[in-house]
């Protein structure tokens, strides 16, 4: 197995209080590239909290988070933002597109912020990403004119804009019907298997969890089991 994309060691997240509320307790986890990892567990067990820590959106109160051999737990906000921009892509349960920007412009946002491509190249890439999720014709639409499934696919295209090594989803199918849900899951599996990205997905849906390569089970803020599953189709 290749080097993990991201390693969490004793990752901890507490909220101040007396006694402090423990959202994530000493989580140990290695996120593998080319694998689709599902995080499952009962509601309120800390799945989202762990995902935000892994995605550098939230800061742990203890432990280490190793990326490229560096501990990012205590890195500066700007540095963490930079790594999110270059290497991480997020998809949330609610599509979270900027409402004033068209689908195409939403996909352009991370491309323009990173500024690695010329405007032309960026536009070509945005169009291609939208085409990949089957929305080549709808890029000019504002999010409010798109269906829920279409919005989520735009969000996925946007998450992939800068060609991230990690794709993180917090119940990305939670709001979709079964057809759309299956499409998104298929996309995510491709991201891992075809494109070699590390994909981590929080889900309630056991059907999705069964399709994952690695299944991480949580309970009361703890990672209680990390199980590799046989590949399925």
């Amino acid at each position: 197995m290749s080097d993990p994309a991201l390693v969490a060691r004793h990752l901890r997240r507490e909220l101040e209080g007396d006694p402090p509320a423990v959202l994530v307790a000493d989580a140990d986890l290695a996120v593998q590239p080319g694998k689709f990892t599902a995080i499952v567990g009962p509601s309120g067990c800390g799945k989202s909290s762990l995902l935000y820590l892994l995605g550098l959106i939230d800061r742990p109160t203890g432990g280490q988070l190793l990326f490229d051999g560096r501990d990012l737990a205590q890195a500066s906000g700007d540095e963490r933002a930079r790594i999110r921009l270059e290497h991480f892509g997020f998809v949330f349960q609610f599509h979270f597109l900027l409402p004033e920007f068209t689908a195409f412009e939403n996909v352009m946002l991370p491309l323009r912020r990173l500024g690695r491509l010329s405007l032309r190249e960026a536009e070509a890439r945005a169009n291609q990403l939208l085409g990949d999720v089957g929305l080549a014709e709808k890029g000019w639409k504002l999010p409010e004119k798109l269906s829920g499934g279409e919005r989520q696919r735009v969000a996925i295209a946007r998450a992939l804009a800068n060609n991230p090594r990690l794709v993180l989803g917090d119940e990305p199918t939670g709001n979709l019907d079964s057809v759309n849900s299956a499409r998104v899951v298929e996309l995510f599996r491709d991201l891992a298997h075809q494109q070699g990205r590390a994909v981590v997905c929080v889900t309630h849906d056991m059907g999705i969890a069964d399709l994952a390569d690695i299944r991480v089970s949580m309970l009361d803020g703890r990672v209680v089991e990390v199980r590799e599953q046989a590949p399925r189709t």
Binding site: A81, R82, I83, R84, F90, F96, L109, P110, R113, L114
Partner: peptide, 16 residues
């Protein structure tokens, strides 16, 4: 606030 959170998660910095 929501858009701010989205932009932050995308990798925009506090300064941005």
């Amino acid at each position: 606030r929501r858009d701010i959170a989205i932009l932050r998660s995308m990798g925009f910095s506090e300064g941005d």
